[in-house]
């Protein structure tokens, strides 16, 4: 166990900023133990923020995944704005975001819909991470297809996570995944359109 981990234990699993950045760096560099520790921390933070979302008035964009990922970073890293640290963070958070959404979609599928919401209980409504039926279904299919791509090369999954779930730019994705922007662009275009073609077949 390294030093950072020990220190984190002492403060009862609520790691300090320095620890977080250290864990992130270690996880980025391939330390599986650090990854195992930091993933749930980020996952929980993302989930917490996602649950707190107030829905957008007009139904289009709201506090979207990009913003959630970003906000979680602000909370966790408390002002640490070095791109190096953010890069480490994104490489974990992109996957965590995917997981949060997928779990929400799965639980949504399990919930029986059509309940009337009474005025009195409005306050509690937003405690649920609500996702529309259509979106949950799309997301589950999306994930299935993405798994197919990943079966051939995991890089597709990482790129899609960065671009789609964390909302990173081509350039940022390239840094996080550690390949050239041109490659990211090519692989992202390919994956996106391949996914779309297959998704539209499923839904039709």
């Amino acid at each position: 166990m390294n030093q950072a981990n020990n220190k984190a234990r002492q403060v009862n699993n609520s790691p300090e900023k320095e620890d977080i950045t250290q864990y992130l760096r270690q996880a980025y560099e391939g330390d599986e133990e650090a990854y195992a520790f930091i993933f749930p921390v980020i996952y929980n933070e993302l989930r917490k923020i996602a649950k707190g979302i107030r829905f957008n008035f007009h139904g289009a964009a709201t506090l979207n995944t990009t913003a959630i990922v970003h906000e979680a970073y602000l909370k966790l890293a408390k002002g640490e704005s070095q791109w190096e640290s953010r890069k480490h963070y994104y490489s974990v958070a992109a996957k965590a975001m995917r997981q949060v959404l997928l779990n929400a979609a799965r639980s949504k599928k399990a919930i029986k819909r059509g309940e009337n919401i009474k005025t009195e209980s409005i306050d509690e409504v937003h405690e649920l991470l609500v996702m529309s039926d259509a979106t949950s279904a799309k997301l589950i299919n999306f994930n299935e297809l993405l798994l197919q791509l990943e079966a051939e090369d995991t890089i597709y999954g990482r790129i899609v996570e960065c671009r789609f779930f964390a909302g990173l730019s081509i350039k940022e994705t390239a840094e996080v995944v550690n390949i050239s922007p041109a490659t990211v662009k090519r692989k992202w275009q390919m994956a996106r359109n391949w996914l779309f073609v297959h998704l539209s077949k499923i839904s039709s």
């Binding site: 996602a50 829905f55 957008n56 139904g59 506090l63 995944t65 997301l139 359109n193 539209s200």
Partner: peptide, 19 residues
């Protein structure tokens, strides 16, 4: 495809489907 994923991305964190 671009539009589709943008829309999906937006709906992920709480959009309402038209239904």
């Amino acid at each position: 495809a671009i539009a589709y994923f943008q829309e999906l991305q937006q709906s992920l964190a709480g959009g309402w489907s038209p239904g």
